[in-house]
């Protein structure tokens, strides 16, 4: 399954459906006819090296750029035509920090709940729940600056869950974390997929974050080279490990592929 065929028109069953999306900066074609699907309840890894176009794709899905060619749907809602409905169902963890170090966890989360129109008692209820989910319930009134890097990442995840999205995008969520924090962030997100039925698109260049049961999308130089299951990826490349399959598909050397 190395060829990329257009998936059917985004069904509301899919958390995310991207079809035929291209994007260029000047003469530089950053995304070339990209199509991918994240079904509900699926942990999909968007695998690509730095410069593959992952951040551009995220910018398009989060409606940072308006000039979208092709079609992007979140739970069936077109990002361009029905941005309000689409964005209400979307949770994002960006690469750079979105929480304030000077404020407490609860203050930060109250602000982000309000960005989705949630205030008062309902917000407090959801904040308590979200902090519980990421294992930080007892730190609600601590300032963010007192947290470790891994804990701060978990607050970002709690932040992105407050409005109960159906799709969660994470852009390189484990960069800069030690092994323990990395594992805890990954297992929290995998738990959300299993228990809540969330669709997750996890962008990374770290191949060892791919589990055997995940869906994989390999993005290289703006093009989708493979989309499917992990066993499918290995048999498509005719090798036995994900790392080798990635190298074979992208034609990159050992040094480039982390």
């Amino acid at each position: 399954m190395t060829s990329v065929s257009l998936p059917p028109v985004g069904s509301p069953l899919d958390a995310l459906s991207v079809r035929g999306v291209s994007h260029r900066f000047g003469d530089n074609l950053v995304l070339d006819n990209v199509s991918l699907t994240v079904p509900r309840g699926s942990f999909t890894v968007l695998l690509g090296l730095n410069g593959a176009g992952k951040s551009t794709l995220f910018a398009l899905v989060t409606r940072l750029y308006d000039n979208v060619s092709g079609d992007i749907r979140i739970l069936g809602h077109d990002v361009r035509r029905r941005p309000t409905q689409a964005l209400q169902r979307l949770g994002v963890c960006f690469q750079s920090k979105a929480i304030d170090s000077d404020l407490s966890l609860a203050q930060n989360l109250a602000y982000h709940a309000s960005l989705h129109g949630i205030g008062g008692r309902e917000a407090r209820k959801r904040i308590a729940k979200a902090l519980e989910t990421v294992g930080l319930a007892d730190r609600a009134h601590a300032k963010v600056r007192t947290l470790s890097g891994g804990q701060a990442r978990r607050v970002e995840i709690a932040r992105s869950l407050l409005h109960r999205p159906g799709l969660l995008l994470l852009d390189e969520p484990t960069v800069g974390l030690d092994i323990g924090s990395r594992e805890s962030v990954i297992s929290i997100v995998r738990g959300l997929v299993a228990v809540e039925g969330l669709g997750v698109l996890w962008a990374t260049h770290l191949i060892d974050e791919v589990a055997e049961t995940d869906s994989v999308v390999v993005l290289h130089k703006g093009r989708v080279l493979f989309a499917g299951t992990v066993p499918g990826m290995k048999s498509a490349a005719g090798v036995s490990s994900v790392r080798e399959a990635f190298r074979a598909l992208t034609g990159t050397t050992i040094a480039e592929a982390a």
């Binding site: 509301p12 739970l75 309000t84 209400q88 169902r89 989705h116 129109g117 949630i118 205030g119 729940k129 979200a130 519980e132 989910t133 294992g135 869950l161 409005h163 109960r164 999205p165 159906g166 805890s184 297992s187 929290i188 738990g191 959300l192 299993a194 228990v195 809540e196 039925g197 969330l198």
Partner: peptide, 23 residues
């Protein structure tokens, strides 16, 4: 680490309309 309790996300795939109170 396991999820302490479900957030009940699935019922919210149709989020509330953004009314005056939300604004």
């Amino acid at each position: 680490m396991t999820i302490a309790s479900p957030l009940h996300l699935v019922p919210d795939v149709t989020p509330p309309r953004l009314g005056l109170r939300a604004y």
